[in-house]
Amino acid sequence: MRQSCRALIMSAVGVASLLILTVPGQSAELTRGAMLSVSCAGCHGTDGNSPGSVPGIAGKSASFIESAMKEFRSGARDSTVMGRHAKGYTDEEIKLIAQYFANRK
């Protein structure tokens, strides 16, 4: 029993190390979109999942996020703090952020 247990553990270990070596896809690509977007998580929650009163943005459509950000920036959409933030990003950056959060769950 102990013998077979050990054999099982050893083969599991073998499989695990194989996995670690052969699945580099586990690590995320460090994209510009990610670099910009992780800074939003402080208020909107990790990956845009907000646990409190700040609106969550995970999985919202890219077009919704993009237009909301542009409207915050121009003042067309009322806000308390988002207008001040949105002015810090270019059209291209807003698009990258919108795509990033559209792809979160």
Binding site: G42, C43, G45, S50, P51, G52
Partner: peptide
């Protein structure tokens, strides 16, 4: 803003 302050706290501490 007082309400968002509380939401800010929930979000950042979860982050």
């Amino acid at each position: 803003e007082a309400r968002y302050a509380a939401g800010w706290y929930s979000s950042i501490t979860a982050d």
